[in-house]
C-alpha cells in the first residue's frame, strides 16, 4: 500500500540509472544502479516519511534490493 510513496522516495534519493517508472516492484535495485551511499539516503527518507526506525537487524542488502522488499519492510514497521 506504500508502493507509490516508496517509488517517490527512490526517485528523489536513489540516484538510479534506470527511471523508477520503468522498474517493476521486483526489479533488482542494485542492478538499477542503487549505490551504498544512495541506500543511506533512501533509508533516511523512508524513516522520515513513515516515522519509523529500521532496526539494525534489518539493515541488510536484502531489505533494499527491490521496491517490494522496501514496501514489505515499511509495512512491517509502520503498523
Amino acid at each position: 500500500m506504500h508502493s507509490e510513496k516508496v517509488r517517490e522516495i527512490l526517485d528523489k534519493n536513489g540516484r538510479l540509472s534506470s527511471p523508477v517508472p520503468d522498474l517493476s516492484d521486483d526489479s533488482d535495485l542494485y542492478s538499477a544502479g542503487l549505490t551504498s551511499l544512495a541506500t543511506v539516503s533512501v533509508m533516511l527518507a523512508l524513516e522520515d516519511e513513515f516515522d519509523i526506525e529500521i532496526p539494525d537487524n534489518m539493515l541488510s542488502r536484502k531489505t533494499f534490493e527491490s521496491i517490494s522488499s522496501i514496501v514489505e519492510t515499511v509495512n512491517e514497521l509502520a503498523e
Binding site: 551504498s36 533509508m43 529500521i54 539494525d56 539493515l59 541488510s60
Partner: peptide, 16 residues
C-alpha cells in the same frame, strides 16, 4: 568499519 547505520548495510553485503 563502514560509517553509520548505512554502513551496516555495506558491511552485511561485504560479508555476504
Amino acid at each position: 568499519p563502514f560509517f553509520g547505520r548505512g554502513g551496516r548495510v555495506m558491511a552485511a553485503t561485504q560479508r555476504e
